[in-house]
Design a protein around this nucleic acid. Structure first.
Length: 682
DNA sequence: TACGTGGCGCTTTTT
DNA sequence: GCGCCACGTA
């Protein structure tokens, strides 16, 4: 028999500081002060979701919960930082020991500690989509698949398929039937590639984004002792944006909360917009089934938008079949100003309209930072960017390519990745291919030679699994020496020697220098010359690299630096001001990236059928409903003014102009809710 | 085997 | 307007 013994909480603060009843509305208060247990908070847009979560954390802390026992999972790292910042403002507590961040970053943190249980060393590399594609391509090549004989999916397509398999926890065959039926004849071969890819990742001590979730989960499932540690640690689990979790994330939460069931999930089914990434909003719809003893709270009072905007939002989402019906009601006073519906001739005119309105708004003292232009896809913004530049209106764009995904950044970090993880095949090949006379074939041969040495080194060390990668770089080790010993063509010889020296310089005795110093060394010794010759915009790229060195200064540990690089989102990066500039600027963003934000004025542009909704989403009802939710998200970002614009013509390169139909979503909104603006040229 | 050249197809959303 | 691929040459 086992005995249940409860340790009493040590009260941290003797008095309760916050007057919760005064700071929160009734619905929020109920959620914030709920008894421990499963809690589902259905939070409409602008209803104070973040506020509720923040106060819940504060409430737990004030009731003596140790910050170490709280896990706060958010959609971006920035969201976690902001919430914890607010908690710190509310309470005189040090919450720095509270775990907060994205599922991926938390997975990373746990795997760095316990990855050895799965045969990974703590210095594993995190691969982004491009690395993943590269590695899959080499795997396909090694699998003896001749691209001339059969048409086989490319690395990026396979990466997407594998990612779906992991995130939805579906067998490959089922997934192919549903999403890629035309690949069914290749099932066996794809399966084979998948297995080889998994092995390859292990051999190169690398994990892709999905592994950070999947490996964490499987480690918990296979190693009860480790799972137990975290079950005990995370006594209270809070999840933001729960509607955008996928199966594996939901399982992770369920597993951790198995014993205590203190899990609070917050979300809005109407804002689920990531199904293409495996998100499944059934997670939120079925939460009450999985936790029948749980409590459900609905917070539906909207503090953000004026009633006129909210009515449009309610109308916009009404056509969706799959949803928790709810009706947002506004707490704000009517402005007697209806959202605008604006038809324009073409994209250029649309850009002129937006730009002109922005200038007028600025004259009315609306802060430029408080204005956003939202669109379905990045390329919808090109004309607008031109127009804004022409008029000297500063803008800030959360771009599609992340800063850290640019070629020059990845080239330089390849050197760092390699010395941090000498088994990183992708990084090694990328690095050596920068040298003249080294292409795919030679890189492969050089890698084979290097890998043989690494394995030998592991054997010498008596193959302590713990320290495989770290072991190779243990004291007295040189990266340069074994490289010098390899054969390269006369054409490459000079730079090859240079490379060997550089590696010893950045990792003397096998120990990597601080990241910032490494960057400077690599750029000066090798990359600067390379960049001058290979890029037309050398100056810009050099500036980026200098910026990278500055950014790197805050990290002393290589692995920490590389993890950050891989896991930071562009929304996060902006806040870290990697790209500088926190001056006044209009925000240009995809709707996806604007999730969770709000602005005084919002323009939603390119509202034509095929653009928004995207033509790719017109086939199935589910896809169309998701587009509609996306439209809903766009509308509900606006506090005071909303402009819905659509060009009637699209100038497409070469083939003449194409007439555009107004978005079907616009037709779903009753006329009387919008004001028709007739735009005239003069 | 590396790398330059010309043609082609094409454009969703991202941790 | 851009990147990817196939092809041909050094």
């Amino acid at each position: 028999m086992s005995r249940q013994y409860t340790l009493q909480r040590t009260p941290r603060s003797t008095s309760i500081h916050l007057d919760y009843a005064a700071e929160l509305n009734e619905q929020q208060l109920a959620a914030v002060t709920a008894e421990p247990g499963p809690l589902l908070v259905i939070a409409g847009a602008g209803s104070g979701k973040t506020r509720t979560l923040t106060y819940r954390v504060a409430y737990l802390l004030e009731n003596g919960i140790d910050p170490r026992n709280i896990l706060l999972l958010t959609f971006t790292n920035r969201a976690a930082r902001e919430m914890l910042g607010r908690v710190a403002n509310l309470l005189p507590v040090d919450a720095s020991e509270l775990w907060g961040g994205t599922f991926h970053s938390v997975g990373n943190r746990i795997l760095r500690r316990h990855g050895s249980a799965l045969g990974y060393s703590s210095g594993f590399t995190i691969m982004d989509r491009e690395d993943q594609k590269d590695l899959i391509d080499t795997v396909v090549a090694n699998a003896g698949i001749d691209p001339k004989e059969i048409r086989f999916p490319k690395g990026d397509v396979l990466a997407e398929i594998f990612s779906f398999v992991v995130n939805t926890e579906k067998p490959l065959e089922e997934l192919l039937v549903e999403k890629f039926p035309y690949f069914l004849p290749l099932l066996d071969k794809i399966q084979d590639v998948h297995e080889r890819y998994e092995k390859k990742k292990k051999a190169t001590n690398s994990m892709d984004f999905d592994d950070l979730l999947e490996k964490t989960l499987s480690m918990f499932q296979e190693h009860e002792r480790i799972a137990e540690v975290y079950r005990r640690q995370f006594q209270f689990i809070l999840v933001d944006e729960y509607q955008d979790t996928n199966k594996i994330q939901a399982d992770l939460v369920d597993l951790l909360a198995r014993d205590h069931r203190n899990v609070m999930v917050v979300g809005d089914d109407a804002q689920s917009i990531y199904s293409w990434r495996g998100a499944n909003f059934q997670n939120i719809l079925e939460f009450p089934k999985r936790y029948p003893d749980g409590q459900v709270f609905k917070i539906e009072m909207n503090y953000r938008s004026v009633p006129e905007i909210l009515e449009v939002a309610n109308a916009a989402i009404a056509a969706n079949v799959q949803q928790f019906r709810k009706h947002l009601s506004s707490t704000r006073e009517s402005k007697a100003l209806k959202p605008a519906l604006v038809a324009l001739n073409d994209g250029a005119e649309q850009a002129q309209f937006v730009a002109q309105r922005i200038l007028e708004l600025r004259d009315e003292n609306v802060d430029l930072n408080d204005i956003a232009v939202l669109y379905r896809a990045h390329y919808h913004a090109v004309e607008l960017q031109l127009e804004l530049s022409r008029r000297g209106i500063p803008y800030q764009i959360t771009s599609g390519i992340r800063f850290f995904e640019q070629a020059h950044i990845k080239d330089v970090t390849a050197f760092i990745r390699f010395v941090a993880n000498p088994r990183d095949e992708v990084a090694f090949k990328r690095m050596v291919k920068l040298l003249p006379g080294i292409g795919n074939r030679t890189a492969e041969n050089l890698w084979q030679a290097w890998a043989a040495g690494v394995v030998a080194a592991d054997v010498d060390r008596g193959s302590e699994k713990e320290s495989q990668a770290a072991g190779v770089s243990a004291s007295g080790y040189s990266f340069g020496e074994p490289l010098q010993a390899m054969n390269v063509s006369a054409k490459s010889k000079k730079m090859w020697t240079q490379l060997a020296h550089t590696l010893d310089e950045i990792a003397p005795g096998g120990q990597p220098n601080p990241p910032s110093e490494m960057i400077t060394s690599i750029v000066e010794a090798i990359y600067d010359d390379y960049a001058k010759v290979n890029f037309t915009n050398y100056e810009l790229r050099r500036e980026d690299l200098d910026q990278l060195a500055v950014f790197a200064r805050q990290f002393k540990d290589v692995h920490e630096f590389l993890s950050q690089l891989a896991l930071i989102s562009n929304v996060d990066a902006e806040a870290t001001s990697v790209q500088g500039a926190d001056k006044e600027a209009v925000n240009l963003s995809t709707v996806h990236q604007a999730k969770g934000l709000e602005f005084h004025t919002v323009f939603v542009i390119w509202l034509t059928d095929g653009m928004f909704p995207s033509s790719r989403s017109l086939d199935t009802r589910d896809a169309l409903e998701e587009e509609r939710r996306l439209f809903y998200v766009a509308i509900t970002r606006a506090r005071d003014e909303l402009y819905l614009t659509y060009p009637q013509m699209r100038l497409s390169g070469g083939y003449g102009d194409v007439f555009q139909r107004p978005s079907r979503f616009l037709q779903e909104i009753p006329n009387e809710l919008l004001e028709d603006w007739q735009v005239r040229r003069r």
